[in-house]
């Protein structure tokens, strides 16, 4: 019975959390939880020239990761996607820029996650279960991973390790064998791998996939989004070069 009881303390805490979310919460967007319903009458809303334009990542400087964090992230993602004959590495594709911009923005803040309590341990099928926003998880996990690496490898930082030792640290995180002090190492690894793949293959407007190299590697044409005219043309190679939401070199060459 006592498990099912809602204690007075829990109830007060929960109420305080909800209140804080309402007061300090980021703007609620159309389609998100908490957005009031709208009634549209007459004509559908339309305004000349208006666009739901995506924010375009600029520059290759760091805006989220500290120097200490960079010292882990750069070699770590380079082990997840190393350079080889097939295609560029994560660093060559600017995945670190993608991660940095994502963690500095709404994704990092967890704007699209429900981060309120309670926080019972979820099942793997339930996906990401944490009170941390992604940015908070990276911030907490990286120093913990460094401590773990030092404890396992004679006080050497992750960057100082040879590639096989770096792999050993990452594998220990992935399997859950590495128990971190302040963060869920397995959850962090899963997120880092997921985000690295996203940065490698997503549209270059988000900072990664430099020169659409990952798309060229796998023959993906990118944001060319209609192929009706090709449905009946079997066995032919689709000639379209990859194109980003922001275009491709062919749009501008002389």
């Amino acid at each position: 019975m006592s498990d099912g009881e809602i204690s007075r303390r829990k109830l007060l805490l929960g109420g305080a959390m909800v209140g804080a979310a309402v007061v300090t919460g980021a703007a609620v967007h159309d389609g998100e939880l908490g957005m009031p319903s709208q009634t549209i009458k007459g004509a559908l809303p339309w305004r000349e020239g208006a666009a739901d334009a995506p924010p375009i990542a600029t520059g290759t400087d760091y805006r989220f990761f500290t120097a200490a964090e960079q010292a882990f992230i750069e070699p770590a993602i380079e082990r997840l996607i190393p350079p080889d004959d097939t295609g560029p590495s994560a660093m060559q594709s600017n995945v670190h820029v993608f991660l940095d911009r994502q963690l500095a923005g709404p994704y990092g803040r967890g704007d699209h996650f429900f981060l309120g309590g309670p926080w019972p341990k979820g099942t793997p099928e339930q996906g990401y279960q944490s009170r941390f926003s992604p940015a908070q998880l990276y911030r907490a996990a990286i120093p913990a991973v460094e401590s773990y690496a030092k404890s396992q490898h004679d006080g050497k930082s992750f960057r100082e390790l040879a590639a096989p030792d770096q792999d050993a640290v990452l594998k220990a995180l992935e399997s859950g064998e590495a128990k971190l002090e302040a963060a869920d190492g397995k959850g962090f690894f899963a997120m880092l791998l997921q985000n690295t793949l996203e940065g490698y293959f997503s549209d270059p407007i988000y900072g990664g996939n430099k020169d659409m190299a990952a798309w060229k590697m796998i023959g993906f044409p990118g944001a060319h989004y209609d192929y009706r005219e090709w449905v009946g043309r079997h066995g032919e190679r689709v000639p379209y070069p990859p194109v980003s939401i922001q275009g491709r070199p062919g749009w501008s060459e002389s």
Binding site: H29, G49, A50, A51, A53, P55
Partner: peptide
């Protein structure tokens, strides 16, 4: 002339 030198966003543009 159309006043489009500055990006004109829809009211429900997210992630800005």
């Amino acid at each position: 002339s159309l006043g489009l030198k500055k990006e004109r966003l829809t009211e429900d543009s997210t992630d800005r």
